[in-house]
């Protein structure tokens, strides 16, 4: 059974121009990617801003429209479903947003924020709703009495937990976490990351973890896909990627992470300069004749790279 598979997914945005505003070109935000997630694992999607990683996550949730391709979830292609059929599957996939300060409506109480998905997908009496909200609040380690508070009464980490509680209310199986901790201080970040690991074990969740922070990705993920210009350039287990990177872009990304040991400073800088030079020299050979990054080629069972 396929838990989740994105097959040849493309998301293009039209560029309009000319006197009559006709479509003259496309911005290829996601350009033909294929990836598969196994149940219970954490798959990390890494890349720099504009590489298409967030668009991929949002398309999975139906927040962006796919241009072509398939999103197979539980053996069903979500893109071929009509609205009603889709909403059945939609509640199995939830999202955690980046900024806990702006993703919670400041004028709504915690109970209304968390109950929103329940009210959208299930018909429950207000008493049942309240009970359910208190339940998930307890799950995320917040006091059940806090349901009538407003978001500003919580700290950043607590707010992110409210966001997670909202995602958990419908017992989802897959959670798309789009930069869930980038807006948080390190100590709060640690708290949220630990917590995400805990609930993953408890509820057998699968994560699509989107981030630009390679340290966090390494800590959290089982498998990783490196995205660059709308394409996946390398995919493998965390070990494959960090110990044995093959694509020059992956190498460059990894060499750019600051080394936490100040005594390695000069060595690390020299290494980075060397990788940068290699990147600039061999850059072109990773594209095909049309300027598209070449397709992935398997190196081992787990590891594949977009090499010519």
């Amino acid at each position: 059974m396929t838990f989740l598979k994105l097959e040849n997914l493309k998301v293009y945005y039209p560029v309009r121009g000319g006197f009559f505003k006709r479509v003259v070109d496309n911005v290829k935000a996601v350009d033909d990617i294929t990836l598969e997630l196994k149940e219970g694992e954490t798959y990390g999607l890494v890349g720099e801003s504009g590489c298409g990683k967030s668009t991929t996550g949002r398309t999975l949730l139906g927040l962006n429209k796919a241009t072509s391709g398939k999103i197979i979830f539980n053996d069903v292609d979500l893109l071929s479903l009509n609205r009603r059929e889709y909403s059945q599957y939609r509640k199995d996939i939830q999202m955690i947003f980046q900024d806990p300060y702006s993703s919670l409506n400041p004028r709504k109480r915690v109970i209304d924020i968390i109950a929103e998905p329940i009210r959208n997908f299930e018909k429950l009496s207000s008493k049942e709703v309240k009970r359910k909200v208190q339940e998930v609040l307890e799950k995320v380690g917040l006091s059940p009495e806090s349901i009538y508070k407003y978001p500003h009464e919580f700290s950043g980490g607590q707010r992110q937990r409210i966001g997670i509680a909202r995602a958990l209310t419908l017992n989802p199986r897959l959670i798309v976490a789009d930069e869930p901790v980038s807006a948080l201080d390190v100590s709060v970040q640690a708290q949220v990351l630990n917590f995400m690991k805990d609930i993953q074990k408890e509820f057998n969740l699968t994560y699509l973890f989107i981030s630009h922070d390679l340290g966090i990705i390494r800590h959290m993920c089982d498998r990783i896909g490196i995205m660059y210009k709308g394409r996946i350039v390398e995919q493998g287990t965390t070990e494959d990627i960090y110990e044995n990177p093959q694509h020059i872009y992956t190498k460059r990304l990894l060499s750019a992470i600051p080394d936490i040991n100040p005594d390695n400073r000069d060595k690390h800088m020299a290494f980075r300069k060397q990788v940068d030079a290699e990147f600039n020299n061999s850059f072109n050979q990773y594209f095909d004749t049309e300027g598209k990054i070449v397709d992935l080629r398997p190196l081992s069972e787990t590891h594949s790279v977009a090499l010519p």
Binding site: G157, D185, A190
Partner: peptide
Amino acid sequence: SLFNSIPSAAHGQDRLHVIQGIV
């Protein structure tokens, strides 16, 4: 505590250190 809560310094460690309370 700061050092122990960053992922890149905590290779292989499953849990990160969490500083209790808030700033």
